[in-house]
């Protein structure tokens, strides 16, 4: 018989460790504790909690595409530990069918909402948080946008290469330089004859008018939003002004912050770029939700 019971029994499966020493560039004084959890309907995640009194706002890190909950190049691990050092409890977890979580056992219908709800409940139960910031890259940003629009417990969202729509200005900026390159024009025409799936085929964006309404609703609820666009979004986003042009007046409200980093790539391949991103998120969390200054 296999012993799948864990040493420390709680309502959820849980095991704990404290780092032996601090990580460079992250919490400097054994500031956090990490615990492994099985929860919900076969979901798996790791919770990073500050050792001392935590903020009442917790953070959920959502899967970036099909990548496991540790994030591209382990970015979510570093981010969780950095934010825990600022006083925020952070849960990184896998949605069903991804990473360490079981394959989905129920119909897809409300799965995103149901699983995010299970994650929020776990985070609240284990760390006492009452409201949540959802953070995701690519499809994770799409999930954060959808859930944030309908769940009143969501206090903020960090959307990395998240939702935005091409505008006339986008097409002018995108197409003009390419029209002078015969090779690019030819490749474009060939691709129209036999279109291959692009990144946008894997995104989950609402219809534009609906997205405007969702953003307006979040802003009206005083949800804080940080949009970060990189060069990896060049096929649909190429200017700061495009956010307001495509998502409406709410994008200009004080609840919305925007960074546009065209020189960076979609998954932050280089460590120096990840350091910039983590520093930006840490500063934004401190300014919007308090906690220790990073």
């Amino acid at each position: 018989m296999v012993n799948l019971q864990l040493d420390e029994k709680t309502l959820e499966n849980r095991q704990e460790f404290a780092p032996a020493r601090a990580l460079a560039g992250a919490p400097s004084n054994e500031a956090f504790v990490e615990t492994a959890h099985g929860f919900g309907d076969g979901l798996v995640g790791v919770l990073t909690r500050p050792r001392v009194a935590a903020s009442k706002v917790g953070v959920l890190l959502l899967n970036a595409g099909l990548t496991r909950h540790t994030g591209p190049f382990r970015m979510h691990v570093e981010l969780a530990q950095k934010l825990a050092g600022q006083g925020f409890a952070v849960l990184r977890f896998d949605q069903s069918g991804l990473g360490d979580s079981a394959s989905p056992g129920k119909a897809a219908g409300e799965r995103r909402q149901r699983e995010t709800d299970a994650a929020m409940r776990l985070l609240a139960q284990e760390s006492g948080v009452e409201r949540f910031v959802l953070c995701g890259l690519c499809s994770g940003a799409d999930d954060a946008f959808h859930v944030g629009a309908v769940d009143a417990r969501v206090a903020g969202a960090i959307l990395l290469d998240g939702v935005a729509y091409p505008t006339p200005g986008f097409w002018v900026r995108h197409a003009l330089p390419r029209l002078l390159d015969f090779g690019k024009v030819l490749r474009f025409l060939m691709s129209r004859r036999n279109p291959a799936p692009s990144l946008s085929d894997f995104r989950d964006w609402p219809e534009r008018t609906k997205a405007r309404g969702m953003l307006a609703e979040m802003v009206a609820r005083d949800v804080r939003l940080l949009f970060v666009f990189t060069g990896g979004a060049y096929h649909y986003f190429n200017h700061r002004a495009q956010l307001g042009a495509s998502l409406g007046r709410a994008a200009h409200e004080k609840q919305v912050s925007l960074d546009f980093w065209p020189e960076y790539d979609h998954t932050f391949f280089l460590r120096k770029h990840r350091r910039v991103l983590l520093k930006r998120i840490a500063a934004w969390m401190a300014s919007e939700f308090g906690g220790k200054t990073p």
Partner: peptide, 11 residues
């Protein structure tokens, strides 16, 4: 079913 856990030596 599966169960996540931490193990190993202290540190």
């Amino acid at each position: 079913m599966s169960a996540p856990f931490f193990f190993g030596a202290p540190g």
